[in-house]
Write a protein that binds this DNA or RNA. Structure first.
Lengths: 341, 341
DNA sequence: TTGTATGCGTTATCAT
DNA sequence: ATGATAACGCATACAA
């Protein structure tokens, strides 16, 4: 009297095998490597698969082959256009490979990140792609213990867990600020939402350049705990303008904030770039067509996602990159919003 | 002579069981339902888990329990802010449940959608969430064959596969166009990128209202095969203005296009709303703070994702919704860009 | 509350 | 080229 057990109910390899009058393993082979089976059997098997409506059970496959086709990706936010671009690069690079993306969103929370990574590690992904380079000790331990390839994206730091691809946020923001100084702006504000690690480094870049120019003033820095947005940009700019610091420009932490700042200035009938200069960060597509167009620091978001995924693909295939740390750099695009003089 | 086989190498339930000197099934229970095990054993087990560094193998769990904790989600695009919001709602609603999201991006391709769905179905997800209501016969068959709960989002159509949550794009766009007419605009253009099914319905809504008002003119419609963007909005608006139709307003297919149209008008020193009215679609956050602020049709994107996920959760738990089709509606927010008279 | 035996659907290993 | 058999790691069914 055999025990009853819940099955998935779906057809299995054995069902196909019976229908095609071959063994299960032959069906398995025919599906994974059609060349390894005689064309006669292959045809019989394929028609059996179709008529039965067989689809492989990936859990069973994983269990038997002790490998996954999952690549875990952890990013902080979906609504930030930056990560939409990064993700597009990731998905594009995953296209055509056998890998699927398992996506986790941290909402910029350390705790959430830890929970996600713990969950993902339990799924034994083929590789992991994570955002940033600041991770708690527990996370680093978790990841070091896991022996799959790991890429950290967005930043290039001193101490990568495995591989990394990004750029220097400090240098990039510094370049924006330096551009403003070169255009004769002097009382340059810094506007930022939510102080995630990258934002802090951008602030550091701004501060360094301002200090070097002897123009640093704490009161020029306006930040908020809210996530960046165009709306927040208007509020931050409004706050800056209300302070008694007579600002003549801003370095925005990102383009949404920059656009908000521009709208706020326009609302106040200020003249850009004559009275007020604006520099954004990331160079989202709208910056070039805004009226006036807005200067920004170009970051290579899509390439970052794409390159990271390619590195993972290679690493999984055993091709370790010669260069485990890749700096994608940045560029400054000067536009009307700083075209003074 | 037992056969050697490649194992994952990681500790298993059996390892923990040995270390804690209990049976494997007790460990399994202790982990899934701590209350079902005596506190003595539970402690021993938990410390063994920690010291060994055990993490469950989800493939094995899936195989043994014949159920997955994966919910498949298929959307057309990541860079479209609309779907970023929808996804945020989805992820938020999945938070705290045992479910993980498996995300697929179709890039608005029918073929890609079919491939993705085939892949996902093979993974026997606990539920599926898919975008739109236009699917090829093969896809409908694939999904009908699959007996998991399915929600279609974005639209409410006549023939849902299972459940749906959305709104009428035709009515929504019609409301925007009607608003323009009510403000005295007459030669109202329609600007759109990529003609996905929702865009076509919005165009239909615009056309219907224009016909009813006796103002329809094919030449007022400007579309492109490129994906919507602010940049495209400037190009479409420029094209419209170059046609000999003397347009005095536009209904944009979405807010990016609307913003682009506004920038183009500003570049040409046109006066909004006196000379030219603009209505967007979706009401992304920047519409309210743009200068001038832009009228738009509010869609409930976050709620759509959230509600859809909640319906799936309920359905998985056996609680079929009384109402399998939910219309979330829309609202019109009138702002400066149409505040004429 | 705890344990034993067994099976989930597939692939690796060995054999022909 | 094809097949028999034994795992993969866990949870179900049943027993104690």
């Amino acid at each position: 009297m055999s025990r009853e057990r819940k099955t998935s109910g779906n057809p299995t390899l054995a069902d196909v095998a019976k229908a095609a009058d071959v063994s299960a393993i032959t069906v398995s082979r025919a599906l994974r490597d059609p060349g390894s089976v005689s064309s006669q059997l292959r045809e019989r098997i394929e028609s059996a698969v179709r008529s039965i409506g067989y689809v492989p059970n990936s859990a069973a496959r994983q269990l038997a082959s002790a490998r996954t086709d999952v690549i875990a990706v952890v990013i902080p936010s979906l609504t930030n256009a930056v990560f939409a671009d990064v993700l597009t690069g990731i998905y594009d690079a995953a296209e055509g490979t056998r890998f699927q993306i398992q996506l986790g969103i941290t909402n910029y929370s350390r705790l959430k990140e830890q929970e996600l990574l713990r969950l993902f590690v339990s799924q034994r992904p083929a590789a992991m792609l994570i955002t940033g380079s600041d991770h708690g000790d527990e996370v680093r331990r978790l990841l070091r213990g896991n022996d799959c390839p790991i890429v950290q994206i967005m930043e290039v730091g001193a101490n990568p867990i495995d591989m990394q691809v990004g750029f220097s946020h400090e240098d990039a923001a510094g370049a924006g600020t330096r551009h403003l100084l070169s255009k004769g702006y002097r009382r340059i504000g810094f506007l930022a939402g939510q102080m995630d690690p990258r934002t802090q480094r951008r602030l550091a870049g701004y501060s360094r350049v301002m200090h070097e120019a002897g123009r640093f003033d704490e009161a020029l820095i306006v930040t908020s705990s809210k996530p960046s947005s165009v709306v927040l940009g208007t509020a931050l700019c409004s706050e800056l303008l209300s302070r008694q610091v007579d600002p003549d420009a801003v370095q925005a932490n990102n383009d949404d904030v920059a656009l908000g700042a521009m709208f706020e200035c326009q609302r106040r009938r200020m003249h850009i770039p004559q009275d007020f200069g604006i520099v954004g960060f990331n160079d989202l597509e709208f910056m070039g067509v805004a009226s006036p167009s807005v200067t920004s620091v170009v970051t290579h978001r899509y390439e970052m996602g794409r390159k990271a995924m390619e590195m993972l693909n290679d690493a999984i295939a055993g091709r370790r990159p010669a260069q485990p740390s890749i700096d994608l750099g940045f560029e400054l695009v000067a536009r009307q919003s700083t075209a003074r003089i």
